[in-house]
């Protein structure tokens, strides 16, 4: 599962929906993998305002990735004057699209429920008493 997706996932339980702690989910015993993807500058630019940068920073610390800049990169930094993609864009692309969680667990900060991730697919099925 891409880190981009993880930046949008919340706990699936109804009781957690209204609490702030249900987002972001915290990775546990996560194994990372790198997947080659084609660079899509327009897509990254479109996603930028929707990203929760605070959540992205906590995620990077928890996964032991190099520290991210304190502020969200702005759209102007993504391309230089001639329209060529910059290093910032490449780094964002590597972080969001190419870094993925292959296996591990995702833990809700509110209820503590653990969602298992296997082969990059997270299991969000809830037993009926937890819905």
């Amino acid at each position: 599962m891409k880190l981009l997706t993880l930046n949008f996932l919340t706990c699936a339980r109804k009781t957690c929906k209204s609490t702030a702690a249900a987002f972001p989910l915290h990775p546990k015993e996560a194994e990372l993998e790198q997947v080659e993807m084609e660079l899509n500058p327009l897509f990254v630019k479109n996603m930028l305002p929707r990203l929760d940068w605070e959540a992205m920073k906590t995620l990077a610390t928890e996964l032991g990735l190099p520290n991210l800049p304190a502020e969200t990169p702005v759209a102007e930094e993504l391309a230089n004057e001639s329209g060529e993609p910059t290093q910032t864009l490449r780094d964002l692309h590597t972080l969001l699209m190419e870094t993925a969680i292959a296996s591990g667990k995702l833990v809700c900060g509110n209820c503590g429920h653990e969602y298992a991730v296997k082969e990059g697919i997270a299991n969000f099925l809830l037993p009926s008493h937890m819905v």
Partner: peptide
Amino acid sequence: DGDMLLADIGQGVPFR
């Protein structure tokens, strides 16, 4: 290419 979740859509959509 896409990410996938094993989830029941009748239990809601777990995204912010």
